[in-house]
Structures are given as structure tokens and as C-alpha cells.
Amino acid sequence: MNNALIIGQYVPGDSLVHRLDPRTKITIIFFFVFIVFLANNIASYTLLTVFALASMLTSRVPIRFIIKGLTPVWFLIVFTFILHLFVTKEGTVIAEFWIFEFYSGGLIQGIAISVRFFLLILVTSLLTLTTTPIEITDAIEDMLHPLNRFKFPVHELALMMSISLRFIPTLLQETDKISRAQASRGVDFKTGPVKDRIQAIVPLLVPLFVSAFKRAEELAMAMEARGYQGGEGRTKLRELKIERNDIFIFILFAFVIAGLFMTRTYG
């Protein structure tokens, strides 16, 4: 398994961020995503950046791991920055190069958008880095619960999510195993013309699908054998509980929001 992208990967730990109720984390991130778009000057951006970086440090996920894991995203951030630098024609000219003129407005907007982007990615990946998929699903099921009244299949949706999440690592492992087996039989996934490489996918996909279907069938059978019959009246092994830490974080976050409204410029 290669780890080019860490979004969606859980790093076990026992930090404050890990121990927060998943609903707390999801709610805060939900609002964070909105307020990032309200920041519009140095003070407000600094405030949000400090909050995000502080959460990252508190989570005790190795920083090197986060930085390396976000490699593809870095590329995107740099790309947006450069695009703004070239395209935006506001403010005063600060530099000239060949036929290009760079404006102060472009520089500022480039930085602002990049920071915004970085904050969004950092905070959302922090959620998956510190919360197990099962916790996330439980939280979503719990938060969508009111929709039940409108005949929205909340439990089924959550079940589908947790099953998919549960099987992603399994499928990745399986892919790894089968591609090793086929590589041993002379398939070359890494070099050669594109056409050959695309063809090389068939010996990988067919066994993968066969085993995925087999697993699905076995799982359905096992669930039925253990008397699964939908969400009605089902109790939970893991109860979600809001604790002191969660309340503390909510209050802290309320201050961040208040601070944001105080520091941002209006008009």
C-alpha cells in the first residue's frame, strides 16, 4: 500500500483531539469550513491559522507525516497561488518580468486563497486522522437521526457507510496481494506503453471483483445468521457521550468565532 495521500487514514493515539466526541469534531469542522470564507484580513486569517495549527499540535500526529501525506495538495495550493499571481490585475504593480506584470492585489489574493485552502484541507484531514471511520459513521447516524421522521433511511445509510469504510483497507490489501501475484507472473504495472499498462489492469480487476462479491455474499449471510433485521430497536455497543472536554472545546471555538467577527473588516 503506498501512502501518497493520507486523507482518510486513521493514526491511533490518545490525545485530546482523539478523545473528543466525533460529533464535536464534525460540528466544529462544519462551522470552520464556513467561517474560513469570512476571514478577510491578516488578523482574522492569523486567528484561524493559530486555531488550526494548535489543533494539529494537540493531536500529536507526527507533523512530518501530515506534511508528506498532503503532497498532492501542496501542488494544488502552489498552483492556485501562481494562477492568482498571474491573472489578478488589482492594486499596484510590484514587479515586472518579461511580458508579465505582477500586481499587489494578485499577491495578496494568492496568499489568502492558498491559506484558506490549506486550512480547509488541514482541518478536514485532522478529522479522519484522529477519528476512526466507525466513530465518524456513528456520529453521522446520530446527527442525521431527526431525518428519520421524513422516512429517510438513516440507519441503512450509516450501515452502508460503515461497511464500505470497513472494507476499504481489506480491498487495498487484496489489491496489493493480487498485483504482487500477477507481477510474479510477468505483468508489468509500472513501465511500458500506456496501452499495455491499461491492459495489465484486467488481471488485477477480475480477481478483485470476484473476491469482493464473495465477501459481500459471506457478509450478508453472516449478518442474517446472527439475526440482523434492520435498525428498528437496535441498541449500541459504543455510546457517544459529550464530556467536559467537548464543552470546553465548544466554548473555545465560540471565542474563535467571536474573535473572527471582531477582527474581520466590514464594508
Binding site: 496481494k177 501475484a181 500477477q182 507481477a183 510474479s184 510477468g186 484486467v202 488481471p203 480477481p207 473476491s211
Partner: peptide, 23 residues
């Protein structure tokens, strides 16, 4: 080595549960 093909043609590996590689 970049090209492992020749090595792989001379070393045959039967993996754990090799039937999973049929396609």
C-alpha cells in the same frame, strides 16, 4: 534493477492461496 522480468521468469512463486490470482 529496473527490469525484474527475467528474474521473475526464473523464480516461480506460488503464493498463499494462489487461486486468488486466476482471472
Amino acid at each position: 534493477p529496473k527490469d525484474m522480468k527475467e528474474l521473475r521468469s526464473r523464480v516461480g512463486v506460488v503464493f498463499q492461496y494462489p487461486e486468488h490470482q486466476l482471472f
